[in-house]
């Protein structure tokens, strides 16, 4: 990614969202657990919304996109055992998989932001994208905290 422009960076992010949506759609097909199916469908739809948001991105979005929304960062993904995509995942595994995926995407954008520190616009863009992934991870971790960990 040496000849990166804002447009190509956004297209890269869009591709990430498409891959994620496709992954959740395929896992939804394979799942037999209604609780997991529901989450897969929600995650797929969420990624599609993210993709659409990115496609309509313009420079003004730097200011208005979630910049003031506080991050929770419960760090659940730091210590939960990694879940790999597979057939018939449970509700719990589905949430862990999704949170870990958001964490990985966050790490990718954070790395890119670090790499493009010399370019103010790209730095801002990747920092913003990284932050958005953390917000998505927050949403999934909060859901995990409310459901799987409701008794803990």
């Amino acid at each position: 990614m040496d000849n990166v422009t804002v447009e190509s960076a956004i297209q890269f992010a869009v591709d990430q969202e498409i891959q994620a949506a496709d992954l959740y759609a395929s896992l939804l097909e394979k799942s037999k657990d209604p609780k997991a199916q529901e989450i897969f469908a929600e995650l797929r739809d969420m990624e599609i919304v993210h993709k659409e948001n990115l496609e309509s991105f313009d420079n003004n979005d730097f200011k208005k996109r979630h910049s003031d929304q506080p991050l929770l960062n419960l760090k659940l993904t730091d210590y939960l055992v990694e879940v790999k995509p597979g057939e018939n995942l449970s509700f719990q595994q589905t949430l862990i998989l999704a949170a870990q995926r958001e964490q990985k995407t966050y790490a990718l954008y954070a790395e890119l932001a670090d790499k493009f520190q010399f370019d103010e616009i790209l730095l801002k863009l990747f920092t913003l994208l990284a932050r958005e992934e953390l917000l998505h991870k927050d949403q999934i971790e909060s859901l995990y905290d409310d459901t799987v960990l409701s008794q803990n």
Binding site: K32, D33, P34, K35, S90, F91, Q92, T147, V148, L149, S150, Q151, N152
Partner: peptide, 14 residues
């Protein structure tokens, strides 16, 4: 471990 439980619906046909 006692963090919570869920239902098993596997007996219901798809």
């Amino acid at each position: 471990g006692a963090i919570g439980q869920e239902a098993d619906y596997s007996f219901i046909p798809d």
